[in-house]
Computed example of a mutant assay.
Amino acid sequence: MARIAKEVSGQVLCFIGFVGVCLTCGLPMWRSTSFIGANIVTAQTIWDGLWMNCVMQSTGQMQCRIQDSIMRLTQDLQAARALIVIAIVISFVGMLLTFVGGRCTSCLKNESSMAKVSITGGILCIVAGAVCLIPVSWSATFTIQDFQSTLTTETQKREIGAAIYIGWGSAGFLILGGILLCTSCPKNDGRDGTYPQPQPMYPYMQPPGVYGPGSYMAPPKTYAPSVAYTGTGSYMPNKPYAMPRTYSAPRGQYL
């Protein structure tokens, strides 16, 4: 029961992480800034993402422009495009394997195959979390350095957007879910085709005549014979026997 609970918890965490990675990829809020001009009415918010840039006015009107050329992006966002897509693919495959190899499903019948598939799915989820963690951390570092730089004007400074925080949380969910899935399998993973059998209720007792640890009967006692037999090599009867008489035919009979 505890193993099933571990697997279900790991599957749920991996699913949440997969959804979070998809949101991180699609949301344009990797970098955000709020620029207020001379008039408070002209305030606007600028969002920079992997696929588009959006400008939201104070009136609620928002305009987005798709980034046609990847060369206009910074180095961190260029690498983030590829890494986030790879993380989505790996996490999807890993999550699919965890559901196939789970004990709560009937896709596989062999215990050894279920354990191997579940461990493989957990490892893929951990890898996907690490791949997702790299671009969001790189983008956050680049944003902080650019904000603290004296060469950047006030209107060009960006802050860490909501997509970065979602990416950090998604990576954490994927890594934690993968660890739970990898540790939910039994100690004997079935490589030799056998699994630990339940211990008997009563200890095994050896049959009579077998002596050693675990025997329950003492060895039988040996007794010496009362009279030792010594053979003479020949047998002599105690009572002598007479020789049989010879047969003689009665007189007067025909021979």
Rank of each mutant, 00 (worst) to 15 (best):
A2V: 08
R3W: 09
A5R: 09
G10K: 07
L13T: 01
V19W: 01
V19G: 12
T24S: 12
T24A: 13
T24N: 03
C25T: 11
W30V: 01
R31Y: 05
S34E: 13
F35S: 14
F35C: 10
G37T: 07
G37D: 03
G37S: 14
A38S: 10
A38D: 14
T45R: 14
C54T: 04
M56I: 15
M56Y: 06
T59H: 09
G60P: 03
M62S: 15
S69H: 07
R72S: 10
L73E: 04
L73S: 10
L73K: 13
T74V: 09
Q78E: 06
A79P: 02
I90W: 01
M95Y: 10
L97T: 00
T98G: 06
G101I: 00
G101T: 00
G101V: 01
E111C: 10
K116L: 09
S118M: 12
L124N: 03
V127S: 03
A128F: 02
A130K: 01
P135E: 05
S137M: 05
S139T: 14
A140S: 11
T143F: 03
L151R: 11
T153C: 09
T155M: 08
Q156C: 12
K157T: 13
G161C: 05
G169A: 15
S170N: 09
S170C: 08
G172S: 03
F173N: 00
L181S: 07
C182N: 13
S184A: 07
N188V: 14
D189N: 09
G193F: 05
P196R: 08
Q197G: 13
Q197W: 11
Q199T: 14
M201T: 12
M201K: 14
Y204I: 02
Q206C: 04
P207F: 03
G212I: 03
G212N: 03
G212F: 00
P213I: 04
A218N: 06
T222V: 12
P225Y: 07
T232A: 06
S234A: 09
N238T: 12
Y241W: 11
Y241A: 15
M243T: 15
P244L: 00
Y247A: 15
Y247S: 14
S248W: 10
A249G: 08
A249I: 15
A249Q: 10
P250W: 15
